[in-house]
Design a binder for these strands. Sequence first.
DNA 1: TTGTAAGCGTTATCAC
DNA 2: GTGATAACGCTTACAA
Lengths: 337, 337
Amino acid sequence: MGKIDIIKLAEALNLSKSTVSRAFRDSSDINPQTKERILKMAKELNYQPNHYASNLREQRSKTIAVVVPELANNYFTQIIQGVEKVAKTEGYHILIYVTDDDIEKERDFIRSLSNGRVDGVVMSVTGESTDHSYLQHINFERLPIVFFDRTYDDIDAPKVVTDDYHSSFMATEHLLENGCERIAYLVVNKEQSIGKTRMQGYVDALKKHGMPLLEGLVVDCSNSYTENDEIIGHFLLRHAPDGVLASVERLAFSTYYACKRLEIDIPQDLKLIAFSSLEIASLLDPALSTIRQPAVDIGERSAHILLKQLAGHVLEESERRVVLNSELVVRASSGMK
Amino acid sequence: MGKIDIIKLAEALNLSKSTVSRAFRDSSDINPQTKERILKMAKELNYQPNHYASNLREQRSKTIAVVVPELANNYFTQIIQGVEKVAKTEGYHILIYVTDDDIEKERDFIRSLSNGRVDGVVMSVTGESTDHSYLQHINFERLPIVFFDRTYDDIDAPKVVTDDYHSSFMATEHLLENGCERIAYLVVNKEQSIGKTRMQGYVDALKKHGMPLLEGLVVDCSNSYTENDEIIGHFLLRHAPDGVLASVERLAFSTYYACKRLEIDIPQDLKLIAFSSLEIASLLDPALSTIRQPAVDIGERSAHILLKQLAGHVLEESERRVVLNSELVVRASSGMK
DNA sequence: TTGTAAGCGTTATCAC
DNA sequence: GTGATAACGCTTACAA
C-alpha cells in the first residue's frame, strides 16, 4: 500500500489539506462534522501525520531527552518512569540516552541534540567533571536542560537534587552509633558533585563525633565492576575498616562480593550502608541498609520544571534548585539484627 | 545568538547552501579544501544540520525504537545496551518505550511510530496477547519490526528468542533431581508466547519423570508486585509446593518475600529457580538459581537483523528466527550445597 | 468554515 | 566543483 499523506487523505475526502490538517490540531476552528468525517477516514486509511514535517514546520518536536549515566540501576530506571509519566501528560515523548559515565558520549549526545531533535533535556551528568565546557556553548533558551542528582555546580540551570549532605551525615552517624571506628567512604569521583557533597557529610559527621579522618579510608573506585572488586578487596585487607559508606549502589555490591571472598562477615566485622534505590535491598544477604532517594519523585519534578520552561513560563526562584529528602532505611547490613 | 542554519553558514563562507550541504554528506563530490573550510566554519559557528529537515527530505530518521515491557529489570536494560551498541555503529539513535505490560500502550506506541518517527522497531511484546491485530495494519516493509523474547507467534516478522522450552525442561528436571515432588510453575500469562513455551518445558519434564501435573500448581500471577505477593502467599499456604519455577524474575522476588513472611525456608522447604538475568543473583539470601538469558547478545542480534533490513538487504531464512541458548546457573535457592 | 499559498531547513537534480 | 531550484509533508496567515 502506498504511503498515505495529508494530500491523499484530503483528496479522498474532497477537501483541502488545510482543512484536514485542522482536524488534527485541536484548537483550530473547523466544522465538528467535517472533523469527524476526516478523523474517520484517517483511521480507515491508516493515516498518521508525518512527524518530521510537522516538527520542521512547528519548530519543535514534542520530545524530551533523558540522559543518564547508566541504566542497570534501579535509581535511574525509576527516574525515567517519573519523567515519562509527567511528559506523557503533556504529549511529550522521551528519548533515553545512556552515557556509561563517559563524558565524551555525554558531549556528543548534547551536541547532537541541540539541532532540534528534542525540545529539552533532563540529565544526570557523568562522574568525570573534568571538562564540561561544552555546555557553555549550548543555548539554554533554545534547549532547556534540567539537571538532576549529578550536576555541574558551575552551570546555571535548574537542578533537582537530594539532601545528600544530610543523608551522608546521618548514615555516618548511624555507623558510628553502631560502634564503627574505622569507617570508609567509597566513591567513584570525589570531585564530582554528589561524590563531593556526600563525602562532606561523611567528613563532618566524623568530626562532630571527634573521630579522625583516617588516611586511606576514602577509597577512589572506578566505573568497572571487575576493577572495583579488586580495589575494594585490596582495600579491605589493607585497611580493615569496620564500617563502609558506599556513595553509589554498585560499590556496595562490590563490597559484598569482596567480603564473601575474604570471609569478612557483614555486619559482624563490617557494617555497610549505601546510597541505593534497589527494590530488593531486603532480599540481600544480609539485607542492605540504604539511603533511598525519592527517584520517581525526582523524575517527576525534573520533568515538571522542564515542561514549565517549554511552555514558555519563567521559573520561580525555588524551582531553580529543588532539594528532596532521602530516606535512611536501616537493615541488617549496618547492624540491625 | 540567533540560530544558525545552512544558509547563514553558506553566506558566511560565500558559498551556496548546496555546497555546504555536500560537505556534510560524505559521498558527494566536493573540493576537499572547500569541504575543510566549511567544516571548520561550521564548528566555529556551532552549526548542526537540522534533524527534522533532513529527515523530511531523506525520508528516514536514523532512529530505531526499542519497545520493552518494563525497565526495572536487568534483562531488558541489558537488551537495550546490546541494541544501542550495535545501532551506534551504523549511526542510529535509539528511542526507548516502556509499555508497562499494557497492550494499549504498546498499540499506541507502534501506531505513533509508524509515521516515520523511527525507521524500525525492536520489541518485546506485552504479556496480554489477547488482541494484537493492530499489527496486521502496519506495513513491515515500511516499518520493519524485530521481535525478541516475548513475541506474537502469528505475526510474520523476524524473531530472536531463547531456547525457553529446553531451559524450562532442564530447570524442572533439576528441581526433580533435587528431590522436589510438588513443583509449581509461576506465570504471568500462560497464553503468551514465553509463558506458554516455558510451561510446556515444565509439563514435559514432569511427564518424562513420571510425575503428575498436579492441579493448582500452575499459578497465574499478575503484573502488580503487591498482588503477586498475596497470590503467591496464598498459594504457598494452600498448596505447599516443595519446588518453584518462576517464569519471570519478579515472581521469584515475590516468592522470596512470601517465604520470609510465612517462614518457609528456601531451599530447605522450597527450592526455587527463576528465569532471570539479575547480576546480583548470588547476593540474595539464599543466592538465586537462575536461567540466565544472553540478554546483551539478544539485543545485538536483534539490532543486527533490523539494521540489515534497513540497509535494504533481504534476510536469510536463518535470520527470521534466531534461537539463542540460556544458561542454567545453579545456586543455593535450588539446593546447591 | 474552508481554501490558497508561503515557508520550515534540508538534499537531489540538473545546469553551468 | 559549484550554484539554482524543486521537492519532502506539514501548519498557518490570509483570503474567500
